[in-house]
């Protein structure tokens, strides 16, 4: 399959006002396959935005070039580029009296004549995108009166109305709460499947991105880029190597990040499935190192008719707790 977007020996970075050049990453040879959802991840400050803005042509590369459908970005005229590539940025949009409908309608800009007149066919597309993005009930509202998350959706609907083959989104989930984040990513995934459009987005949320992206691009702080399916990148240890810090480790079995507690007490947890797992999580939270191997302390869990019972074996003593909070309070005051 031919790549939709391709970079050739791309060097990205920026030039400060005193002429000093800061290189973020060198020799990037990336490609995007049509119809895929690609997520760009990396620690804060690794240069995700710079890369994204360079790929969209907003920022100039230090070296190398970006090809869109085999044509160099610099050779495509602004108006025909606007029909192929749409962006959703973190730039704050504040226009007095601009309503949702008119904001989405601006997406038709590359298709209208010099007066900007919208035809019925344009309105059909605008209506469809408003509908797809679930903005129908807001269409006459002014954008200064809706929430940041809703405004983000408007910007995405506007990008869709541009009918591009590629949409680049810089941190589209930044303003949303967790369920909305998941919803947005699965919506984008659905768009990419249904409309054949390609999405490239940068995100903070690794766990979330792993759940919906076809491909991950991981850019580490040293400017090294790793590409692959999310699962591959976990299995070959790249996720852990990029994101782990002195205080946080990546659990490659569950795919989650956990805090490391230095010099913590060991504790053994025995118990069935869910119960054992969440008891372990609670003990981890208050600072224990939970293991399946035998340790001087052990918590066993069991389900009785009266409810759940937690039993703590501590230096020969056996203590019973009917509520998890009681167990935690006991351990916190006695041991930690």
């Amino acid at each position: 399959m031919n790549a939709l977007l391709q970079t050739k020996n791309l060097h990205i970075g920026y030039q400060s006002s005193d002429g000093e050049i800061t290189t973020i990453a060198k020799d990037l040879n990336l490609s995007l396959q049509p119809g895929q959802l690609t997520c760009l991840l990396g620690p804060n400050g690794a240069g995700k935005s710079t890369l994204l803005r360079t790929l969209c042509g907003i920022q100039k590369p230090l070296e190398g070039e970006t090809l869109l459908s085999g044509q160099s970005l610099t050779e495509i005229s602004p108006s025909s580029l606007a029909r192929k590539l749409a962006v959703v940025l973190t730039d704050h949009v504040e226009v007095e009296c601009l309503c949702v409908e008119d904001l989405v309608a601006l997406g038709r800009y590359p298709y209208t004549n010099w007066t900007g007149k919208l035809h019925d066919s344009d309105w059909k597309i605008i209506d469809e995108m408003i509908d797809l993005s679930g903005l129908e009930h807001l269409r006459k509202r002014e954008i200064s009166q809706i929430s940041d998350g809703e405004r983000q959706k408007c910007m995405i609907a506007r990008a869709l109305a541009q009918q591009p083959c590629l949409i680049c989104l810089d941190e589209p989930t930044a303003f949303l709460d967790l369920p909305r984040k998941i919803e947005l990513l699965s919506t984008l995934r659905r768009f990419s499947r249904e409309t054949g459009r390609t999405f490239l987005l940068s995100a903070h949320d690794l766990e979330l991105a792993m759940g919906s992206a076809d491909t991950l691009w991981i850019l580490n702080e040293k400017g090294k880029m790793y590409l692959g399916t999310p699962e591959e990148l976990v299995l070959n240890g790249i996720v852990a190597a990029t994101f782990e810090t002195d205080e946080v480790y990546f659990n490659e079995v569950t795919g989650t990040f956990r805090q490391i507690f230095q010099g913590s007490e060991k504790i053994q947890v025995t118990g069935e499935g869910r119960l054992g797992y969440w008891t372990g999580r609670a003990l981890e939270r208050i600072g224990f190192q939970v293991s399946k191997d035998s340790a001087s302390r052990r918590v066993s869990t069991e389900t009785t008719q009266g409810g759940i019972l937690w039993i703590l074996y501590d230096e020969g003593k056996k203590l019973r707790f009917e509520a998890l909070q009681e167990l935690l309070t006991h351990l916190e005051s006695r041991v930690l």
Binding site: C56, S80, A82, L85, L89, V93, V95, L106
Partner: peptide, 10 residues
């Protein structure tokens, strides 16, 4: 919408 968005619209 700002210079960046304007540019992206052509």
């Amino acid at each position: 919408l700002g210079e960046n968005y304007a540019r992206s619209l052509g």
